[in-house]
């Protein structure tokens, strides 16, 4: 049996924020997309998980938040095993998830979207109110009563991040948050991610594009065909064209 959520909350503050994948095998239905996957996200760091389209990046995030069943291996968050927990339980441990396609509730207004994500304050993680989030995303503050369906892609992306912050997470999972956005918006979101890091959040960022990852991440893991094949600092990757050529060029 897993520990009760209340017990876990009480003990969160004393543990360093950390997400850990151990020899994880996972996939969709019978199709395995992640093989013996190992990864560690340290407290307060921004780690980019780089890889081509279909490499297994999203699978890792979905498995962590509990949207995909795992085949074998383990996922730990604050040393708590996540495999058998449901998404809502995992989210209530302080793990925020921002999906690739944003998944805004388009029938709901900005304020209502934020209300869905709301969770009680959590020790060891910054506490957010809608007003504080509107400081972080001024655009959203100007469209509080607007429905998700009439927002631009960039605004939806901001709302998706803000919505998961309403749960006061200690760690954020971001799945390609820059995809399809205008350069100015990309810079704005990168700035936000750096601000979140500054507030002590850990961020696991999935990204295909090294240029975007470079904006926020100091450490890099590269995944190819579902297997982790390189871990190092951003500086190392920048200094090694052969490595970039091998795993990241299209």
């Amino acid at each position: 049996m897993h520990e009760s959520v209340a017990f876990i909350w009480a003990n969160l503050a004393s543990r360093p924020a950390m997400l850990e994948f151990k020899r994880l095998n996972a996939g969709y239905g019978r199709a395995q997309t992640l093989f013996e996957f190992d990864l560690q996200l340290g407290a307060g760091e921004v780690l980019a998980l780089l890889g081509r389209n279909g490499a297994g990046k999203s699978t890792a995030l979905k498995a962590a938040i509990g949207l995909l069943p795992t085949f074998s291996g383990e996922i730990f968050f604050h040393k708590i095993k996540l495999n058998d927990l449901e998404p809502f339980q995992i989210s209530r441990l302080g793990l925020g998830y921002v999906p690739e396609d944003r998944r805004i509730f388009t029938d709901l207004t900005v304020m209502e979207n934020l209300a869905v994500g709301r969770q009680p304050p959590r020790a060891g993680a910054p506490h957010w109110t809608p007003e504080q989030l509107f400081e972080l995303f001024p655009n959203l503050g100007r469209m509080r009563e607007r429905r998700g369906s009439s927002m631009s892609g960039g605004e939806q992306q901001m709302l998706s991040i803000a919505r998961s912050l309403m749960g006061n997470p200690s760690t954020l999972l971001l799945d390609e948050p820059f995809e399809g956005l205008a350069p100015l918006i990309v810079e704005g979101i990168a700035k936000t991610i750096r601000a979140l890091k500054h507030k002590g959040l850990s961020v696991l960022l999935c990204e295909q594009n090294l240029r975007y990852a470079r904006l926020v991440a100091e450490r890099v893991c590269i995944i190819e065909k579902g297997r982790l094949c390189h871990t190092g600092t951003m500086a190392e990757l920048d200094a090694d064209p052969a490595l970039r050529e091998r795993y990241l060029s299209v």
Partner: peptide
């Protein structure tokens, strides 16, 4: 009401509502 908002959210995308901590 918040309950109503959660109902509307789950009506549209219950999986995402779960990933945001809503006990479906």
């Amino acid at each position: 009401t918040r309950w109503g908002i959660l109902i509307r959210a789950a009506t549209q995308d219950r999986e995402m509502a779960g990933a945001l901590g809503v006990n479906q």
